[in-house]
Every structure is written in C-alpha cells, then in structure tokens.
C-alpha cells in the first residue's frame, strides 16, 4: 500500500442512474420518467430536455405520482417514478402497496437521496425507514446499489425486469468498488473480499466503509469477508448461511434504522438457519441530531475504525462461545 494514496474519486450515483435512463429512453419510447417537482434533485433535466413530453411531472403530490405511475404502466409504458425516498416511500406507502406491489404493476420506483443524504435538513427528510417499509411488501425487489457501476447495472436490470422494483439511491459520493461491466443479479450478494474470521455485510453508502474497515482489520491480522448485499429483498440467504458457517460472526452496516432493514433481514436468516454472533450497525432507533450524512454515519459508529472495532468485539464473542 502506498504511504500517500491519491484522494479517492467519488461518484454521485444519480449520475449513473440518469445516464442509463437516458440511454434507455433513446432506445425505447415507452420509457417515461415521473416525478414530484423533483426534476433537479432526481437529475432529470437531461431527460426532460430530450423528451419533454415523456417527463410526467405531477407536482408536489406523491400519492398521485405513484398512482399515475401504475396507470402509465397499465397503458403499456415503462415508468421510472422518481422522488426523494423519504416522500416517495413514506407519503405514498399505501399506493406502493396497493397500486404497485399488490397490482404487480411494471413500475420502477426510484428513491433518491435515501438514508441521511439530506443530512442537516433533518429527520423529516431522512429516509432511514424505507428498507423496512418496502421489504415487507410482496412482489417488490428492494435494491440499494453500492457504487455508480452497480447503480447503472441495477437500473439496466430493472428496466428489463417485468414487475415492480424499488431502487434506493443516494446523493452522497461513493468510490467505485465493482468492476466495470458488472452485471447486476438480483438477490445475489457480491463477495468483495475474502476472509474467514468475520463477515461484514453492507450495501449502499456503507459498502465502501465496510471495505475500509476490512482493510484496517487485515492490518491487525484479521481477515474479514465483505459481502455487498444490494438486494435486501429477496435476501441472499445462501451467502448469509455460508458466511455464518465459514466465518462464525456477522457484522451488518446500513444507512437505515437498525430496526427492519438490511441487518434485520440478515438476522432473520441467521437465526433460522445458522445462529452465530451478530451485530447490526445503523441508526439506533432515534431521530438523528443535526449533521451531514457522513458526520451522522460516523456519529452512529459506522466510521471504518468503529466498524473494525465492532468486528473485533464480535470476534471476542465468537471466541467466548467456543
């Protein structure tokens, strides 16, 4: 490792999303974007300038936005319904349940600025409940890509998949972790790092932090496995069980409440199939104090150093069971 490394190049995954959306839009006139006055925050300006008639802006009305999305799909179009994840999922939860998931409408829901991306705007604008709200709904794959490469691949996959999808995107910059040309496979975790001492499972903005934590652990002689688990539903039970059996301890991390999200989904599998010591990192069931997303992740014990420490604590628990 270099003593002085170059500054990490960070990507706003919204750019990858709209790049694919605009390419799909050029190939297929049925692709439409639906938004709630969020042309700027969803980065739909390019799409709008190319195909103004195919940008359906319903105004600040999320319930109508999701219902309109279902109706557009019924009329044979391929709608990408985009809005800040907090409003898209929270304000129109019942529309997502009845009009999209239960009706099995071919609508792609794109939650922008998820997690605590809105930082200082506070808990009204944080979307740290969306995994829980979305993953309980049948028929609805829930996906949080970890970088711009996975975002592009997931959008591409979602467009070709016949049925509803929830894509959870951030606006917080992340480094690219996956290889260019990566093909997204729903419900399959990517093993980004091998190891047998402990497994770190993360997605979205936390995957690169998990990789950094694993680097810190390696420097201390602890080889951690890192799984990027973009799909929260359907969860990759096979990879989780293998991780439990082969590494004996699992640490999860997510930009979401510790209740009902990725960690809960992993724990449901671990408890039923292969019980091992686990720790779930996330927002600890409180409304966050003022701060940026990066500050709050550190505050809630998800800096790479704190994650490495949490992994070491798990190792101690694992040892005490032996």
């Amino acid at each position: 490792m270099n003593a002085v490394s170059a500054p990490e190049k960070l990507h706003d995954c919204r750019d990858a999303f709209v790049a694919v959306l605009e390419r799909l839009g050029a190939e297929n006139t049925k692709v439409v974007a639906v938004c709630n006055d969020s042309v700027g925050s969803s980065k739909l300006g390019g799409f709008k300038s190319k195909w103004p008639e195919r940008l359906v802006n319903v105004g600040i009305a999320e319930q109508n936005m999701v219902g309109v999305g279902a109706g557009l799909a019924n009329g044979g179009l391929l709608p990408f319904v985009c809005g800040a994840s907090c409003f898209l999922t929270g304000r129109s939860l019942e529309q997502i349940k009845a009009d999209i998931a239960y009706s099995n409408a071919n609508v792609k829901l794109v939650g922008i600025s998820s997690g605590m991306a809105y930082g200082e705007l506070g808990p009204t604008h944080h979307s740290i409940e969306d995994f829980a709200w979305m993953r309980v709904l049948p028929n609805l794959p829930v996906i949080a890509p970890c970088d711009s490469i996975e975002t592009a691949a997931a959008v591409e996959w979602a467009a070709g998949y016949e049925g509803p999808v929830f894509l959870r995107l951030s606006r917080v910059g992340v480094p690219d972790l996956l290889q260019p040309g990566h093909a997204f496979e729903p419900g399959k975790a990517n093993r980004l790092r091998d190891g047998d001492a402990v497994t770190l499972i993360a997605n979205g903005t936390l995957t690169h932090r998990a990789m950094k934590a694993a680097g810190l652990l390696a420097a201390r002689g602890i080889e951690a496995r890192v799984l990027n688990m973009a799909t929260v539903r359907p969860i990759d039970a096979e990879s989780i069980v293998a991780a439990a059996r082969e590494t004996g301890a699992i640490l999860t991390a997510e930009e979401h409440s510790v209740y009902g999200g990725l960690g809960s989904a992993v724990a449901e599998v671990v408890v039923a199939e292969a019980p091992v010591p686990m720790k779930i990192l996330g927002v600890p069931g409180i409304f966050a104090p003022t701060g940026s997303a990066e500050f709050l992740l550190d505050e809630f014990g998800m800096s790479p150093e704190a994650m490495a420490k949490a992994a070491e604590d798990l190792l101690a628990r694992k040892g005490s069971r032996a």
Binding site: V56, N64, G67, V68, G71, A73, N74, G75, D99, S103
Partner: peptide, 21 residues
C-alpha cells in the same frame, strides 16, 4: 385493471392510464 379497496386510489391510476394514451 388495478387493485382497489383503500379509497382514493382509482382516480390517480386512471389519470396515469389516460396520460399513457
């Protein structure tokens, strides 16, 4: 055409259908 039951859902979906046409 679409699953209804909770009230206030049909009209937004119908708007989407008409817009699609």
């Amino acid at each position: 055409e679409t699953n209804t039951g909770p009230l206030g859902h049909g009209l937004p979906v119908a708007v989407g259908m008409a817009k699609a046409a």
